[in-house]
Amino acid sequence: MKDERSSFPARLKTNAVAVEALLETLLGPAVGTGEIARPANLLGAMRHGVLNGGKRLRPFLVAESTALLGGDAEAALRTGAALECIHCYSLVHDDLPAMDDDDMRRGKPTVHVAFDEATAILAGDSLLTFAFDIVAAPETALSDRQKTTLVLALARAAGHGGMAGGQALDLAAEKSAPDEAGIVLLQSMKTGALIRFACEAGAIIADAPAEDRRRLRAFGDKIGLAFQLADDLLDLTADAAIVGKATGKDAARGKGTLVSLHGQPWAERRLESLVAEAEGLLEPYGPRSAILAETARFIANRRN
Rank of each mutant, 00 (worst) to 15 (best):
R270A: 15
R288S: 15
R302L: 06
G34K: 02
R213K: 13
G162L: 01
G244I: 11
L69H: 01
A18H: 14
H48K: 08
F197H: 00
D250F: 02
A137C: 08
G71C: 14
V151Q: 05
D212K: 04
M104W: 13
L171N: 03
D144P: 01
P178I: 01
G54K: 03
D72S: 13
L122C: 12
A98I: 03
Q167F: 09
Q146W: 04
L171W: 03
G159P: 06
D179G: 14
A157M: 02
L152N: 06
W266Y: 10
S6T: 15
G71I: 07
G70N: 07
G32Q: 14
D94E: 11
G182S: 08
E20M: 14
G44T: 03
F132I: 11
P29E: 15
M1G: 15
E139F: 07
I205S: 01
D231I: 02
V62S: 01
F115L: 11
A153T: 12
L23N: 07
A120S: 03
A98M: 10
A153W: 08
W266T: 05
A173E: 04
L128N: 10
S289F: 03
C85S: 08
A276Y: 09
F132R: 12
G256V: 08
V275K: 05
H160N: 05
G244K: 08
R56I: 10
L216T: 01
V50E: 01
A118N: 09
G248S: 12
L258W: 08
G159S: 12
A230M: 10
R11G: 13
K108M: 15
L83C: 11
K55P: 07
T247N: 00
D221S: 11
G34N: 06
S65G: 01
H48D: 03
T25P: 03
A123K: 00
A16F: 12
T149R: 12
H160Q: 05
E35D: 15
D250P: 01
V50F: 02
L216E: 02
E283V: 13
R5I: 10
L186V: 06
R5P: 11
L233D: 00
R303I: 08
V259Q: 02
H48F: 05
A157D: 03
F60R: 04
R288N: 12
G192L: 08
L51W: 11
L12D: 01
A177D: 03
I205C: 02
R217L: 08
A118K: 09
S176G: 04
T149P: 00
A131W: 00
E35V: 09
D94R: 07
D3V: 11
V92N: 00
P284K: 05
A75R: 13
A201M: 05
V17P: 05
P138K: 04
A296K: 01
L233H: 00
H160G: 09
T257G: 06
T257A: 09
A98Q: 04
A75Q: 15
V111S: 07
I86A: 12
L186E: 10
K55R: 13
K255M: 12
S188L: 11
T119I: 12
I134M: 14
A241M: 05
G224V: 02
N41Q: 15
A201T: 02
L274C: 07
G254V: 10
Q228Y: 00
G32T: 09
A76W: 08
A226G: 06
G159L: 06
A75W: 12
Q187K: 06
L27R: 00
